[in-house]
Amino acid sequence: MATYVQIDPTQKLEPFKAVKKIPLEEYFTSGHRTCQGCESALVMKMMAKAAGPRTIVLGSTGCMYVANTTYYSTSWVVPWMHTQLGSSGSAALGTAAALKALMRKGKMKKEPINVIAFCGDGGGADMGVGAISATLTHPDYNCLILLYDNESYANTDIQLSGSTPWGANTTFSTPGKMKRIMHRRWKKNMAGMMAAGHPECRYVATICMSYGLAGMNSIRKALTIGGPTFIHSLDPCPKGWDYDPYQSHEMGELAVNTGVWPLYEVEDGVLKLTGRTQQIAAGKIKRQPVRDYLLKQGRFAHFTNDDIDYFQSKVDAMWEKWLVPGVIPFRREVEEDHPPA
């Protein structure tokens, strides 16, 4: 059968069966200087481990560039290259295109090489969304774009991004005497947008490294399936969210268990809720109140009960009113929105 898409073979990365089956080799090691309790550094470590040694990583500007790759003390064992803040999509595409052309033309040894470009929420959900979107429309190139979302421009002093939750206190949205809520935008639904808007992208997933094995297997699936793929990881950030670093793991669990961060994957257009999210949707466990999540973080310390109720109502709507709960915010009828005064 003739096909218009000519795709090179990928590495066949089977899912890790259990934590104890994960290899010991590290491809993101010492040398970085991320904050204590940094979940994004954990994501980098797990991502590199999941991908293995025959991988090229492109990193756009952000925490995981500035903190990980000080000159002469790189933490990367695999080849790594900086890319510009809004360029994760282009970096992945360009690198994958070069490998494809050079191998086809006999200028480089044929071999499946993983190409991963990562970006933060600033680089991915704000500046780089156009380039990521474009890359996800190019079915010929094998590459993964991983968005590590710590919900602010955390490297530049915690400024709000399009991925910062409603109402959060950031250095660009500090509560004051006249205005308690400075950040009045709801978090952008990146994974849903990427899944819904890119018909030829074969794999989109949300992960949280509090559930590390599932996260790593998601990365392995994204690299194996072929074509451009996208993973959005929610990474609790002690500095930006203002909590004790030892709570990072718990914070990720709370984001999932309160329903604020739904875990799912869309594979060849088929949506599957995963992990705890699947259990919540199936009614096996109850969603925890968002209060349990919000009040553990200093960035929401200025919230009144009204603010918390409003936040809860938006999360409830996400699960009860959306046509595809937790994923796509289409509704059957218009609903009024009543943010607190």
């Binding site: 282009s90 360009g94 690198t95 295109a97 070069a98 200028k107 156009g130 474009a134």
Partner: peptide
């Protein structure tokens, strides 16, 4: 999808040997 990407794509391709 724009000149910024246009030049970034080839920049990375060139760094990978193309």
């Amino acid at each position: 999808e724009g000149e910024h990407s246009q030049f970034e794509i080839v920049k990375h391709a060139c760094a990978a040997g193309a």
